[in-house]
Design a protein around this nucleic acid. Structure first.
Length: 291
DNA sequence: GTGTTTGTTATCAA
DNA sequence: CTTGATAACAAACA
């Protein structure tokens, strides 16, 4: 599941590789993965230059040069999306390959939904097993609207402060885990990091937000910044499908304290970790440390 | 055939 | 009208 650290890793690597490059051709293999339509992609993206690659929460935002609309390409990986860049350094079946020998995998594969060719011949593959992810071309106004309507403060930025965090959360009374997954309250957390920050802060995922004290909110705020920062440093977590733009796995999995560890011992108190559904999601926590 | 996996949105209930 | 809880989506695997 690509969450903030995984998407940020992809953003940084892609920016280093394809900034200032133009799209030479577009091949949409799964029409439902491209909005508003495959034909619109062909017409509007070919020849456009990538001016910047930004990120908001889990959303990748490619800014296109020139004032022509649509001026942004949005890519959301949702659960199983991958964005893999190949500059043909290694030649294998089909004429293209990944950059790292140990991760070589023939592309495109049966889950490839779109292929974007750059003006230097490099290819950008959008793979998505479950087809929840998408590519979307939007205007400045549409982007502004999407960001304003759907995204709260970004961790590790000046917009994310203890007081803004507490204020945002105090407007609801859902379970704290559900609040952390709500992108409008804080952007970028998904199921893995929500569980990790709650364990770090010692808060039970089932606690209603209104019963979390200000002191605990502060611990949670600090846990979010600490864990997101560390996860970015280690290039994210690979649990199932996630790989970076070179096809490599993230290195943060070994730092996970509770996610995917139901039945194992709590690193703090040795109690057996629980796994149960909270807010409709598989949730891992320590019944003793997290109150 | 059944249950699981999750990001986001649609739908329903209170 | 608002809020919160849940279903649905898609696809593959155990």
């Amino acid at each position: 599941m690509p969450e903030l650290p995984e998407v940020e890793t992809i953003r940084r690597d892609l920016a280093a590789a394809i900034l200032n490059r133009r799209f030479k051709s577009v091949n949409i293999l799964s029409p439902k993965s491209a909005f508003p339509s495959a034909a619109f992609f062909e017409k509007s993206l070919v020849g456009r230059e990538i001016k910047a690659i930004n990120r908001r929460g889990k959303l990748l935002i490619f800014q296109l040069a020139s004032a022509v609309e649509p001026s942004y390409l949005l890519i959301h990986l949702k659960m199983t999306g991958q964005l893999i860049y190949s500059d043909k350094k290694h030649k294998i079946a089909g004429g293209h390959s990944l950059n790292t020998a140990e991760e070589l995998r023939v592309l495109p594969n049966k889950h490839t939904r779109a292929i974007l060719e750059m003006d230097n011949g490099a290819l950008l593959f959008f793979n998505d097993l479950r087809k929840f992810g998408y590519l979307k071309l939007v205007s400045q106004a549409e982007l502004d609207n999407i960001l304003a309507m759907n995204y709260g403060p970004e961790p590790l930025t000046s917009a994310f402060t203890v007081s803004s965090f507490i204020t945002a959360l105090s407007r609801t009374n859902v379970k704290i885990k559900a609040a952390l997954l709500n992108q409008k309250l804080v952007a970028g957390l998904g199921n893995i990091y929500a569980d990790e920050v709650l364990w770090d802060a010692g808060i039970n995922p089932n606690r209603p937000v209104k019963k979390v004290t200000p002191a605990e909110m502060k611990k949670l705020f600090q846990a979010i910044n600490k864990i997101i920062k560390l996860a970015v440093k280690h290039r994210g977590t690979t649990f199932s499908d996630y790989v970076d733009s070179s096809g490599r796995k993230g290195n943060f999995s070994r730092f996970l304290k509770v996610y995917g560890r139901g039945g194992e011992k709590c690193p703090k108190c040795q109690t057996t970790l629980k796994k149960e559904k909270v807010a409709g999601r598989g949730t891992h926590y320590c019944p003793v440390c997290q109150k």
